[in-house]
């Protein structure tokens, strides 16, 4: 029997960076196996939130709890199951697509046979087969993001954290990135991604609206809009901004 992917619960998480309160007592529940969107304008605290989930930053107060099928999992145990792709460029410009995949294969110690099959499938899905020998520094913005995504997807993580994966990506590539994520989630993976494109919220199973480090609201996109009485998420933030 297959249990659903792990979920994450934040309990009043607060984080101050320098003089900025990046997150202010944020409590929320990321249900396992769903595609979650964190939506908010620049500087809302999206990156800080994702970095805390990835274990790269530690909350000043509050707690982050991982659980699977009702049982809590210590961070040390879940860490190998988490994949994270940052917003800033973080691949090696002088390594090719294939070399990046091999590097991640070795870091996660995937068996060769499994790797051969998976990497081909991922390259195909991302339409990067023809570019396997091209260096990351010479890829277009969209291809770069797709390469990063398939690198972290290689070991079939349970939790996938993506920080603005679609920013600076042309509409066609954005579409492809979304297809990639949908193909991979399907109940086996908890995906948490941030975006400042409000129109992408509707593609998520759940959305969390973040502004100035505070959680405004959260829920299913349709129901949430209804509850907030707004035609779009853009309008919500425009209203809040006033």
């Amino acid at each position: 029997m297959q249990t659903a992917a792990a979920g994450i619960k934040l309990e009043s998480v607060t984080k101050t960076l320098g003089k900025t309160r990046a997150l202010d007592a944020v409590s929320l529940d990321f249900k396992g196996g769903l595609l979650h969107g964190i939506i908010g304008p620049n500087g809302a605290g999206k990156t800080t939130l994702l970095r805390i989930l990835a274990g790269l930053l530690h909350p000043d107060s509050g707690a982050v709890r991982f659980s699977r099928g009702g049982a809590q999992i210590p961070f040390g145990d879940i860490r190998p199951e988490i994949a994270y792709f940052p917003q800033e460029p973080s691949l090696y410009p002088d390594l090719s697509c294939a070399e990046h995949l091999e590097f991640f294969r070795d870091l996660y110690q995937l068996p060769r046979a499994e790797f051969a099959q998976k990497s081909e499938a991922l390259l195909h899905l991302a339409r990067l087969e023809k570019f396997r020998n091209r260096r990351a520094g010479q890829l277009s913005g969209g291809m770069y993001k797709k390469l990063g995504l398939i690198c972290v997807l290689l070991h079939a993580p349970e939790i996938l954290l993506l920080d603005e994966p679609t920013i600076g990506v042309d509409p066609v590539s954005r579409r492809e990135l979304w297809d990639l994520m949908h193909d991979f989630s399907a109940g086996r993976m908890t995906i948490i991604m941030s975006t400042s494109y409000m129109d992408e919220a509707e593609r998520c199973a759940r959305v969390q609206l973040l502004e100035n480090g505070k959680l405004l609201a959260g829920g299913e996109p349709g129901a949430l809009l209804e509850k907030l009485g707004a035609a779009s998420f853009e309008k919500v933030f425009l209203r809040e901004g006033k």
């Binding site: 990835a54 274990g55 994949a83 994270y84 940052p86 800033e88 691949l91 991640f104 870091l107 996660y108």
Partner: peptide
């Protein structure tokens, strides 16, 4: 500087 540390540290290495 080139940001790869953030990605590297999120792996089990």
């Amino acid at each position: 500087e080139n940001g790869s540390m953030e990605l590297l540290l999120s792996t089990p290495v």
